[in-house]
Design a binder for these strands. Structure first.
Length: 486
RNA sequence: GGCGACAUAGCCAAGUGGUAAGGCAGAGGACUGCAAAUCCUCCACUCCCCGGUUCAAAUCCGGGUGUCGCCUCCA
């Protein structure tokens, strides 16, 4: 297993702290708004990382925080005249709706800042006591000059940063780069009592306090977007190592940005698309597929045409899975003619390729390519089957279906049935079809009668009419197949 | 100004020394009442440009050009 480590700027062989276990922490959202697509990328990617480790038999402990105490929340709440905690609570709920839609599994622990104030105060106190931090007028600052490794994660020295000189000078700070661990309360803001007076935590300290609480020093993976490398993660690293005297994190993993017209999608540029806006227009599996179709460290440019193209590609995979389930429903054949022997030979190789792709720094783009190869192999075999299927074929086809399932278990593109683990697709047999499905079947029957008397005008009228409603018909020698348009 | 990343076909995209995966779009063929789906075939003598190293480079080195990002809240 090779993972690109931001700290060393190269791929490294993954050696977990403890054999068979992975301890990982990912920076979650500040909950003052609905999440946008840019927020969704790390969610989906790290969910995939976690799924992959789990599929390899690792025992994964996954922690993702909510920042529910923050300037932006306080400001937004003030604008709306509501309580900041209820505002944050609302958007945490909305976060889960979006994440669930994208088939992102819940983290094992979702800690909130507001529920870890004592730990944070303790952490800050520790840093003050050991000389890493100092107190000014009820504020507490981390003193970067006291930490020799400051800048090692983002690859810049304090001198470089001074040269940049885009930091506003606060004369109370000993160094312009010193950052707040604890901020004294302003009137009307939520605050907690502390040894330095009433106040609230700075931004970076929460992640150190919470990750170390649940995962302890030298945990395996710390993730987030590239824009968090500096200052957020640099500061986390400094204060954590200053506090514990031990390495903080083994592998730092950062995902690239979603861009719009090649520009970073961000709240400040105003060019962001909310996840729920996109989900109103595209199926969630298409969105997830799109997010995973590019390597996580590369930028991913978003627009509707690209999402459309992704959807058409995904349709190919879906069709293959449908054809496969259809074939498996056939009765046993008389003969033992093995149509699927070539497929059998290919399956093991495909499985190995998929795994190799994921082992190489989570190359989901390559892994998806393998899934397309599987689709082709399956389609070729299934096409050869007619009438009943031989027992040997059935075994191979079942194996192919398990392979789709195991790929999907990692990529999380399609929903699966909780009990059987089977992949669920829209269309016949899908959930919640009910009356609509029966009506469609009725119309198809009528069309079949028209076809039987070669009344092509009526047959085509029905087919075109259904297509306009998003129902696509396919005539096959075995009967009519229909599906909802993806 | 400091630091860093990237540049592969019409589009998306994988590929860190051995002679360009995969998908979308497009062309031809098989199948079909016609379609759709599926299968087969074709679609980058070449990987931004210029030098260099090497038997061999999209892949390594040097120099350009271009795009993007971080240095300020941001995933």
């Amino acid at each position: 297993m090779e993972i690109y480590n931001t700290l060393t700027r190269r791929k490294e062989n993954f050696q977990p702290r403890e054999p068979g276990k992975v301890w990982m922490y990912v920076c979650g959202p500040t909950t003052y708004n609905y999440i946008h697509l840019g927020n969704a990328r790390p969610l989906v990617f790290f969910d995939t990382v976690r799924r992959y480790f789990a599929s390899r038999g690792y025992d994964v402990l996954y922690v993702q925080n909510f920042t529910d105490v923050d300037d932006k929340i306080i400001n937004r709440a003030a604008e709306q005249g509501v309580d900041p905690f209820s505002l944050a609570g609302k958007y945490i709920g909305e976060y889960y709706r979006d994440a669930d839609a994208l088939n992102v599994r819940r983290a094992d622990i979702h800690p909130k800042v507001s529920e870890h104030i004592p730990e944070i105060i303790e952490f800050v106190k520790n840093l003050v006591d050991n000389g890493s931090a100092y107190v000014v007028d009820g504020d507490v600052y981390f003193e970067v000059r006291q930490f020799p490794g400051y800048g090692k994660l983002s690859g810049r020295s304090l001198e470089d940063m001074q040269a940049g000189a885009r930091v506003e000078i606060d004369v109370r700070k000993r160094d312009p780069m010193d950052f707040a661990l604890w901020k004294s309360a302003k009137p009307g803001e939520p605050s907690w009592d502390s040894p330095w007076g009433p106040g609230r935590p700075g931004w970076h300290i929460e992640c150190s306090a919470m990750s170390l609480k649940y995962l302890e020093a030298n945990f395996d993976i710390h993730g987030g977007g590239f824009d968090l490398v500096f200052p957020h993660h640099e500061n986390e690293l400094a204060q954590s190592e200053a506090a514990t005297g031990q390495p903080f994190v083994r592998y730092w993993v950062h995902n690239g940005f979603i861009t719009v017209n090649e520009e970073k999608m961000s709240k400040s540029l105003g060019n962001f698309f909310l996840v729920r806006e996109i989900l109103a227009k595209f199926p969630p599996e298409t969105v997830r597929f799109f997010l995973l179709s590019t390597h996580y460290r590369s930028p991913l440019d978003f627009d509707s045409e690209k999402l459309d193209a992704a959807g058409r590609g995904l349709e190919r995979i879906k069709t293959s899975i449908r054809l496969l389930s259809e074939a498996l429903e056939k009765k046993n054949g008389e003969t033992e003619a093995a149509a699927a022997t070539e497929l059998n030979a290919a399956l093991d190789a495909l499985n190995a390729s998929f795994e190799a792709a994921m082992e190489d720094d989570f190359n989901t783009a390559l892994a998806i390519g393998v899934m397309f190869d599987l689709a082709r192999e399956v389609n070729t075999s299934v096409q050869r089957l007619s009438g009943g299927i031989a027992r040997v074929d059935r075994e191979v086809l079942q194996k192919a279906m398990s392979l789709f399932s195991s790929f999907n278990e990692v990529l999380g593109i399609f929903r699966t049935d909780e009990n059987s683990g089977r992949i669920l697709l829209e269309g016949p047999g899908g959930n919640g079809a009910g009356l609509a499905e029966e009506l469609i079947n009725l119309i198809i029957d009528i069309r079949q009668q028209a076809r039987a008397r070669k009344d092509w005008a009526v047959a085509d009228q029905i087919r075109d009419g259904l297509k306009n409603l998003g129902i696509v018909l396919e005539d096959t020698p075995q009967g009519v197949r229909w599906k909802k348009q993806g």
